[in-house]
């Protein structure tokens, strides 16, 4: 464990908690893409199948449980509890264009052709594009609530910090995982436009508005 990875995990956990609280407190999921949350639930499910078979540490196991539980709770709130506030008309990104290519790629490019490893690889590839429906929705509605932009910022920063974690691990542990690194780079690049708007607007107290 290193500081970048720890801060990355904290940032990721914060994003998940911010979203949960935003929906629960405001009793509304307006502006939130249910499709992205569904994709995140798939990402965690396919990545943590070894939750009960491969114990790494208490920290690792407890974080995995929190991630899986909170992602399902978020999907449940969007599609069930507060579905009346779900803005389906603006959440129209075709997720099959994300799931099918990443699934095919996980069969072609992986570390080992075994079910668990292919599912882990699929979850890594899917995570790198899972935020697209949410970013697409923000661009369609032309704006995002400030709390939603904080959620997106924390979520984007988590994988950016992981990039530094991989530099650290390459330098000091001679460890590197090219699949995770390339997918992490793609994931971070997708946030660049949002990072620019967040830093130039939201941090100056303005509302996040995208040129529609």
């Amino acid at each position: 464990m290193n500081i970048f990875r720890f801060l990355g995990d904290i940032s990721h956990l914060s994003a998940i908690i911010i979203l949960l609280l935003k929906i629960w407190k405001s009793r509304s999921c307006a502006g939130i893409s249910g499709k992205s949350q569904l994709l995140f639930a798939i990402v965690f499910t396919t990545r943590y199948l070894d939750l009960f078979t491969n114990f790494i540490s208490f920290y690792n196991t407890s974080m995995k449980v929190v991630y899986v539980a909170s992602s399902y709770a978020t999907v449940w709130m969007i599609y069930s509890k507060f579905k009346a506030t779900y803005d389906g008309n603006h959440d129209t990104f075709r997720v099959e264009f994300l799931i099918v290519p990443t699934a095919i790629l996980s069969f072609l490019v992986n570390h080992d052709f075994t079910p668990l490893e292919i599912l882990w690889t699929f979850s890594i590839y899917l995570e790198s594009v899972a935020i697209l429906p949410q970013l697409f929705m923000v661009s369609k509605t032309g704006e995002a609530e400030t709390i939603t932009s904080h959620y997106l910022f924390a979520l984007g920063i988590y994988r950016t910090l992981y990039l530094f974690n991989w530099i650290w691990r390459y330098q000091f542990e001679e460890f590197f995982d090219l699949i995770a690194i390339v997918a992490g780079l793609v994931q971070t690049v997708l946030y660049c436009d949002f990072f620019y708007l967040y830093i130039t607007k939201v941090l100056k107290g303005k509302k996040l508005s995208l040129p529609a």
């Binding site: 990875r5 995990d9 990721h12 990545r47 070894d50 491969n54 790494i56 690792n60 974080m63 995995k64 991630y67 992986n110 570390h111 080992d112 075994t114 668990l116 490893e117 882990w120 992981y162 974690n165 460890f175 590197f176 995982d177 090219l178 699949i179 995770a180």
Partner: peptide, 10 residues
């Protein structure tokens, strides 16, 4: 190089 199955990151 990462070995298959030993993914210790979240």
């Amino acid at each position: 190089e990462a070995l298959p199955g030993d993914h210790d990151e979240l």
